[in-house]
Design a protein around this nucleic acid. Structure first.
Lengths: 186, 186
DNA sequence: TCCGATATATATTGGATCGATATATGGACG
DNA sequence: CGTCCATATATCGATCCAATATATATCGGA
C-alpha cells in the first residue's frame, strides 16, 4: 500500500504528526508495512493540498513545534475506497534466503553465522509480537489477527531452521567437497 | 539485495540474457526477491561498463537478437564480497494485513472475500513451491532450503487462516455492532 | 484484416520510496 | 565539547517499479 493511503489509514485511528505516523509504522505496522520520512512528509503535504487531511500546529515545552494532522471526511472516504479496491497481496524479500541460495559459494562458517543471526532476528521479532499481544488490551479483532499472523509465520520459520540447520550445514560441506552442479558450466 | 548484485548472483549460476535473469527472478527467486526490467537493464549496462560482466549477441530464428551476459572473474569476486558483507535481513509487506488491520472499517462480506483470495494466493504459492521441489533434481542444499522455508511459512499461514477465519469474522461483526475503541476519538 | 493475448527479446521513462542528511529543541554521559 | 538518544520537520540523490515502446512470432476470435 502506498504511503498516501497508509497515512490516511493511520489518521483514521486518530490524529497524529508525521513523526508519530512513522513511529506507528515502526510499532503497530512494523511487521507488515514500512514508510520512511522521505515519503511520509511529502505524502502529508500532498494529502493536505488535496483536502484529504488538515493540520494544526502545537507548541510544546522542550520540544520543537509539532504539526498534528487530522483526516477529513473526504480523506476518510478516500481511504474506505482504497480498502475496497486493494487486492490482498504480499511482497517478501529476504537477503537471508539469497545467502542460502548461494550457500555453495560461501564457507560453512560464514553460513552458520548468517543462520544464527537470522534465528536471533526471528526470536527478537517473536518477542516483540508477543509483547504487543499481551500489553495492548484495546486491540480490535483485526489488529490482533495481524499479530497472530506474524507470530505464526515467524514461529514456523524458527522451528524449520532449528530442525534443518545441522543437516543443512552438513549437506553444504558435502557438496563443497564434490562437483558443483550447473555452475561449472558457465 | 540490490539488482546489480542479484544479476551477478544469477550469472554465477550460468550465462543469461536480461530477459532470462528476469525470468529466473520470477521462478527460482520469486518467493524471496524480485527485480523489474526497469532496473535489470540499467544494472547490466552498468555492470558491463564496470567490467564485472561481458556479453555476446546471439542471432535466433523467429526471435529478436539476444544479448547473453557472462560474469567476469572480477564480477564473481565482487559477488563473493557481497555475500560476505550482506546481513541476513528480511522485508515483508502485506496489503492483506493492512486490510485486516482496518477490518473495523469494512463490511464483513468484503473482508471474507479478501480472506478467501488470500487463502487462494497462499495455496497457489504452495503448489508452485512443491512443484519446484519435486521437479528439480539438481538443487543444491541451499536452494532446497529456500523452498522449504517458503513452504514452512506459507503452510503455517494457511493453517492459521483456516483456523481463525470463522471466529475472526464473528468477532468483527460483534465489534461493528458495538462501540469502536480509539477511533471515535479522532 | 485487426485486435488481444501470449512468448521471447531489449530498452527507457516518470513517479514512488528509501537512506542519508539537515535543522531544531532538549537531555544524559564521558 | 562531542556523541548519543529522543522528539520534531523537511529534503535530496539513488534505486526501483509499472508502464510503455519496439521487435519477432503465433494463435484465436470478431
Amino acid at each position: 500500500m502506498d504511503v498516501n493511503n497508509l497515512c490516511l489509514g493511520v489518521l483514521c485511528l486518530g490524529d497524529a504528526s508525521g513523526y508519530e505516523i512513522k513511529k506507528m509504522c515502526e510499532e503497530s505496522f512494523s511487521h507488515f508495512q514500512a514508510a520512511s520520512f522521505g515519503s511520509i512528509y511529502p505524502a502529508l503535504a500532498k494529502l493536505t493540498d488535496s483536502g484529504l487531511v488538515t493540520f494544526r500546529e502545537e507548541t510544546q515545552e522542550k520540544r520543537p513545534i509539532k504539526k498534528v494532522f487530522s483526516i477529513t471526511p473526504k480523506g476518510r472516504e478516500q481511504f474506505l475506497e482504497t480498502l475496497r479496491k486493494t487486492e490482498p497481496t504480499e511482497q517478501y524479500r529476504s537477503d537471508f534466503l539469497v545467502l542460502m541460495m548461494f550457500a555453495h559459494l560461501q564457507p560453512p562458517k560464514q553460513l552458520e553465522k548468517a543462520i544464527d543471526i537470522q534465528m536471533a532476528n526471528i526470536r527478537g521479532e517473536l518477542e516483540i509480537l508477543h509483547k504487543v499481544l499481551e500489553s495492548c488490551h484495546e486491540l480490535t479483532a483485526g489488529m490482533r489477527f495481524t499479530i497472530e499472523y506474524g507470530i505464526a509465520a515467524n514461529q514456523a520459520l524458527l522451528e524449520l531452521i532449528e530442525a534443518r540447520k545441522a543437516p543443512l550445514l552438513e549437506a553444504i560441506v558435502r557438496e563443497q567437497s564434490q562437483f558443483t552442479p550447473k555452475e561449472q558450466q558457465s
